[in-house]
């Protein structure tokens, strides 16, 4: 694509970008695979809720298990938190990896990347739009888990004022606000996965390879994060801050950890976003 062509067509770049963003969002949220993943994510709170309900009936509720599991039988809202804790290490990053791996490599594999680049939107903007699409999906994934958790929790368990980690009690509305904040934080954490996936996706024309690589990177970082011998590098790993969302449930709310988590993950977004940009804008697109 020569620069003179684009100069002619770039008279209304903003509207073209927004059109492209809309079509990208439509693409992400109508692809059957992506919707199926969201449905599976919504099943996590349902399964968890039913299991805990049955367990509490047979009196096997107490002891062990993920965080908050004991609180769920007293307040259904905690099902939302437990569901996020359970899905955050694997399911949510996997969902984002699938969409992110697909983003550029998918277009390249079906030969549509070339035609996409004929659209008078430069490659940088195309990349930004692709990233926005993945992040939108990450927000949706976190929201699906949180909302399903709240709904299933309300159906199966008692509701009412919520006991925070600090032992103080807040009204239900306040607690729902906190659930929303946690979902936003989780989505922000997944943005780092989105950026890594986007970069990997620019490297290959095989979407499945990009998805697998992204998932492997996330799991590898999580394993490193669990090795105590290298504790000194843990603060620099993006997964280290994922569970800091528990600080929303303290009274007063603790912001130190979450702020650091957001900064570390933002650094990953910047670096891998820049890598993806450098790759896509220097790449010869042949298919």
């Amino acid at each position: 694509m020569s620069t003179s062509d684009t100069a002619v067509l770039l008279d209304r770049p903003a509207s073209i970008s927004s059109r492209l963003l809309r079509s990208e969002l439509r693409l992400v949220f109508t692809r059957r695979r992506n919707l199926a993943i969201l449905a599976v994510l919504a099943c996590a709170p349902i399964l968890l809720g039913i299991a805990i309900k049955l367990g509490s009936r047979t009196g096997r509720g107490g002891g062990g298990g993920p965080a908050f599991i004991g609180q769920i039988t007293q307040n259904g809202l905690f099902l939302a938190f437990t569901s996020l804790v359970v899905t955050l290490p694997l399911f949510l990053p996997l969902a984002v990896a699938v969409v992110a791996g697909e983003s550029i490599a998918g277009e390249a594999s079906t030969g549509t990347l070339r035609s996409l680049l004929v659209v008078p939107v430069n490659r940088s903007r195309l990349l930004a739009i692709k990233f926005a699409g993945i992040v939108a999906y990450a927000v949706a994934a976190a929201a699906v888990v949180a909302v399903a958790g709240v709904l299933v929790g309300f159906v199966l368990f008692p509701t009412g004022p919520v006991t925070l980690l600090s032992g103080s009690v807040v009204p239900l509305g306040n607690a729902l606000m906190r659930v929303a904040l946690v979902a936003v934080y989780v989505a922000a954490m997944l943005a780092a996965v989105a950026a890594i996936g986007l970069f990997v996706s620019t490297l290959t024309e095989v979407p499945l390879a990009a998805m697998a690589t992204t998932a492997i990177v996330v799991v590898t970082v999580e394993i490193l994060d669990a090795v105590p011998q290298i504790a000194s590098i843990h603060p620099w790993l993006f997964t280290n801050w994922w569970l800091s969302f528990g600080d929303v449930l303290r009274d007063p709310v603790a912001l130190d950890q979450m702020t650091r988590g957001l900064l570390v993950n933002a650094a990953y977004v910047v670096v891998f976003g820049a890598l993806a940009w450098a790759r896509l804008t220097t790449r010869d697109v042949t298919s």
């Binding site: 908050f68 938190f81 980690l165 600090s166 032992g167 303290r250």
Partner: peptide, 28 residues
Amino acid sequence: SLVGDLAESDVVRSGSDVWVWSSRDNTV
């Protein structure tokens, strides 16, 4: 407040009351 991942243990002294709270055990 002893802070852990998704848990907290508190010792609060307020006047002549001393409270020890554990979110994990749900005990006071």
